[in-house]
Design a protein around this nucleic acid. Structure first.
Lengths: 105, 105
DNA sequence: CAGGATCCTACTCGATACTG
DNA sequence: CAGTATCGAGTAGGATCCTG
């Protein structure tokens, strides 16, 4: 998405990872549940489609903010959970959210 | 850009305002200088073009994170400065930047 | 000096339909 | 249940040239 090499702060990379339309919200909902399944996630991230959820999860997993657990059962069963890296971002997201409430209508 | 109405947290709106490719960086550099002129800003936000800088500033001014001061002299002279709203976001940006340094290569 | 005007590309996001 | 495949639209961002 962004990728700005010669930059003294690492904000671009942060936005590469969590700057998408849904990604912070996905993290938010996963965190609320600790562990959550795909369709439950889709229901709680309001307005998201399966494909956007899949793509958001892919980026978050690639960057190791989220871990996926597959159960080899039928019907399929998967669960998503925050990694330590993902959890470490939550306080900041909380602050950001709080800032939005205070300063944006 | 985003705009997600039925959402219990206001993160979408936050990203509407500061989620662009350059906007956080622009805030960052303005904050460093307190007050800064257009071309100096362009030099210090590495890689940005005039049009991207203009567009980024427009959004930030619209949302009152940045204030613009025009001097009616020739040659033209403008200065940009953070508002209280803009300043209030800086600690969070700092945290986000710090998080990026710790967790993203 | 501080932008505006134009034109263009690339990528994100979405709708719909289908599958192991 | 948990996705994939395909196609299409909208928009952020960029290149280049021009101006009060």
């Amino acid at each position: 998405m962004l990728t700005n090499k010669n930059w003294n702060c690492s904000m671009s990379r942060v936005l590469d990872v969590v700057g998408g339309k849904w990604r912070m919200n996905i993290l938010w909902v996963i965190n609320k549940h600790k562990r959550v399944r795909f369709n439950q996630l889709r229901r709680e991230v309001e307005g998201i489609t399966t494909i956007s959820l899949t793509r958001g999860l892919d980026v978050l997993i690639e960057n190791q903010l989220v871990e996926k657990y597959d159960f080899e059962t039928m019907p399929l069963h998967t669960e998503y959970e925050l990694t330590e890296k993902g959890k470490s971002l939550m306080p900041i997201l909380k602050d950001l959210n709080q800032w939005g409430k205070e300063w944006l209508q």
